[in-house]
Design a protein around this nucleic acid. Structure first.
Lengths: 230, 230
DNA sequence: ACCTGAACACCGTTCAAGT
DNA sequence: ACCTGAACACCGTTCAAGT
């Protein structure tokens, strides 16, 4: 039950610190990862962490390296693109693989956006993306534009700007609803139509995976057009 | 010089609190907006703020409402699209206007992404976007896909995942550089080519505005194709 | 080499109290 | 009605000290 009860105390190490931090963020949330809480999870005092990690920023960087290692592992499992192969399919597969890993670490996108410098793990990931693009005939210039256009989609995520929540939820005050319908007719129209369709969809209200792939394919198709008619 | 020296103390109000908070985040950074700091900026004790604002979360929501009011003001200044007009141009103009406002409030995207519920200001903004799409012949279903595909681009921003920094900066250790060139040939190739081109570009290293418009047009053109060949 | 206790300078927030 | 002082439970981090 209690790890701290084991007779031989496992000594701390940078890896153990980072992996415990990742597990903590996974099972609770990023906010739960404080130096004190993480230390207690490891059966140790907060200050001991500073022996293995420079400060909290370094801790977050280290957590991201753990995630990138996972991504690169899974992406490496994909057979590298056969020569002259379909760059679009290769990119799609790599990106959706990265997405699958990030879905296991929902806190990672927020950390990633806060970091400004390019970490080694990220560099290797983008190296792979660029290799596929070059193989597919992209100039460095087009590849550069493509990376910006994809943005976080190149890593398999987009941030939802809002969560429409359950329709008709929270009191469902008909007054408020009808007032909204008057002031926001199109928004209400869309929400109603979408919520109706949710009935025959499998993944509920807004199927994020479907939406992600829709946007991704829109961009990939657009890049293909530019590539073919420069 | 010092507002607190004026004989008549301007009483606090929700508006004054929110506007001061926005100004503080603009001139410094979001991290500078603490209850204590904001209070001292207003010549008041931290606890006084709680009379006008429920808590820090409500303060951030209020700050976003200030920003959305600005966006809606500027967007309203654009003549609403003449009937049967070009939806693509109308969308583009609206989105680039929102972007111009957000560039004045660089902290706003981060706050927006942290919030989960749809604020009134955001609702009105998206209502306008949807109205243009519907006018242009979008079904609610396509409009819904389009909103997801655009993501934060609908509001005029994308988050840069990393800042490549000055090339050859930070010691410019040729050892490190040549090692990177071996392990990351495509990434280095792209960065070198891009940095060369920066010389005849006006906006420096990576012209964000150009990149933003490139990605935006890729998506708008893609949507147009879907609309015309359903 | 590795871990710790005490302390510092910060947070957001409460509560009872002042005018 | 509006503002405040003192206090609480948290942060990350330092530093000198223990083994």
């Amino acid at each position: 039950m209690d790890e701290r009860a084991t007779s031989v105390r496992v000594p701390l190490s940078r890896e153990r610190v980072l992996e415990t931090a990742v597990a903590l963020a996974d099972s609770e949330q990023l906010g739960s990862v404080t130096m004190r809480r993480l230390a207690s999870e490891l059966g140790v005092e907060a200050m001991s962490l500073y022996y293995h990690v420079a400060n909290k920023e370094a801790l977050l960087d280290g957590m991201m390296e753990v995630v990138f290692t996972e991504i690169l592992d899974e992406v490496g499992a994909i057979p590298s693109p056969p020569p002259e192969s379909d760059w679009k399919e290769a990119l799609r597969a790599r990106i959706l693989t990265s997405r699958r890993v990030l879905l296991r670490h929902p806190w990672a996108p927020a950390v990633l956006e806060a970091r400004t410098s390019l970490s080694p793990g990220a560099a290797f990931y983008f190296e792979g993306i660029l290799a596929i693009m070059r193989e597919g005939g992209f100039s460095y210039d087009l590849a550069h534009h493509a990376l910006h256009a994809l943005g976080s989609r190149a890593l398999g995520f987009t941030q939802e700007l809002f969560d429409p929540g359950e329709p008709g939820d929270e009191e469902a005050s008909t007054d408020l609803m009808s007032e909204m319908a008057v002031q926001l007719p199109h928004l209400m129209g869309m929400l109603q139509e979408i919520s109706h369709e949710a009935d025959d969809s499998t993944l509920g209200w807004c199927d994020d995976q479907t939406e992600f792939e829709f946007g991704l394919d829109l961009l990939l198709d657009g890049l293909e057009r530019i590539l073919e008619n420069p």
